[in-house]
């Protein structure tokens, strides 16, 4: 029964009839350590809080009492009617559209230049001094998000900030006391810029690692066939690191659907006209300041659903763009 698992047997085509293996100590301990324990931890710390939060979202729990009343879907109805929450949902969706796209495009462009964008003669290589750029652009990622937020908060300060100082210094007097984070037109773009600034370096390094694992001969072949740098990037590099791009896209999407730390540092109050308000900020206020934990849980459920929908969209798009038909898979 178990003597020759490595030798392919003749009846591979048919569903193999598995004889039940005896419950030896080895087997039981194996199941316990590698299946039951992780599953238990997962259920207790991941699944259970999720179920619990969903249950709370159906109640009017204030958060400070042991008792609560079941109210059905009333909280969700309330969220739909709550224009401020809907604004924050829209802001999150807007972030999820812009931030991953811009970050991935920039990171991909930089990674290409550093790895294969160099001289057209000799071996395929990156630009001169590429390792220096690589280190430099990774710097922002080593700074904690909250610190990034606080640094840029000072940069954007209308009266004493570096940005307005430079702009007025070169003669653009219109930026005197201009509130980058306090004007509806610029608050969101400025906040997005900060997030993207913090992540481009990291995803660049991720893409660099992916590109390094592409066999160099492919680039040589492409070059012999007369492909320019742009053509190489889109026809050789991109298809070969497709999975990495998808993963990066999803991680960035999850980040953008949260974005709490950055927004809380840059505009704790949600920004002018709530233009940078994100769902977790609203959740926190609803739960702890207004004492409506039931409603706040409903917000959390909406956030989770939004994230799952985002992931589903990315998978679908990748598949539609031919992610599975590619012949070359690693």
């Amino acid at each position: 029964m178990i003597e020759s698992p490595l030798v392919p047997t003749a009846d591979t085509e048919k569903p193999r009839k598995k004889a039940r293996q005896p419950w030896t100590f080895d087997r039981i301990s194996f199941v316990l350590v590698f299946l039951v324990l992780p599953l238990a931890l997962f259920s207790v710390f991941v699944v259970w809080p999720f179920v619990q939060a969903f249950w709370y979202s159906l109640t009017d729990w204030s958060g400070f009492t042991p008792d609560m009343n079941f109210v059905g879907l009333e909280n969700y109805q309330k969220l739909l009617d709550d224009d401020i929450f809907m604004t924050s949902l829209r802001n999150n969706i807007f972030l999820a559209i812009v931030v991953p796209f811009v970050t991935v495009v920039l990171a991909f462009a930089l990674a290409t230049m550093i790895t294969v964008g160099g001289s057209a003669h000799g071996a395929t290589r990156g630009l001169k001094g590429s390792s220096f750029y690589r280190v430099i652009s990774f710097f922002p990622y080593t700074i904690p998000a909250i610190v990034i937020g606080l640094i840029w908060l000072q940069m954007f300060d209308p009266s004493n900030g570096l940005l307005n100082g430079v702009l007025t210094g070169i003669g653009l007097d219109g930026f005197e006391s201009y509130p980058w984070l306090g004007d509806t037109r610029t608050a969101m773009p400025a906040s997005m810029f900060v997030i993207i600034w913090g992540f481009v370096g990291f995803y660049m390094v991720l893409f660099v690692a992916a590109i390094k694992s592409v066999p160099g001969e492919l680039y040589d072949a492409a070059r012999i066939d007369g492909a320019g740098r742009l053509r190489t990037a889109f026809s050789v590099t991109l298809p070969l690191i497709r999975d990495n791009v998808q993963t990066a896209y999803i991680y960035l999407g999850i980040l953008a659907l949260d974005a709490f730390v950055y927004m809380a540092a840059l505009n704790p109050g949600g920004g002018p006209e709530n233009s940078t308000l994100v769902m977790p900020q609203r959740l926190l206020i609803t739960a702890f300041e207004k004492g409506q934990f039931g409603l706040a849980s409903a917000m959390g459920v909406v956030m989770a659903v939004a994230t799952l929908v985002f992931a589903a969209i990315v998978f679908t798009v990748n598949r539609l763009l031919g992610g599975r038909q590619e012949g070359v898979r690693r």
């Binding site: 809080p49 939060a53 729990w61 999850i254 956030m303 799952l308």
Partner: peptide, 23 residues
């Protein structure tokens, strides 16, 4: 990856509310 995603999506929820056992 999907599993990981689902887990990641749940993180904001659980971190905020795990402490709120209503018992």
């Amino acid at each position: 990856l999907r599993g990981a995603l689902a887990a990641a999506a749940i993180v904001p929820l659980s971190s905020a509310l795990a402490a709120c056992a209503g018992s």
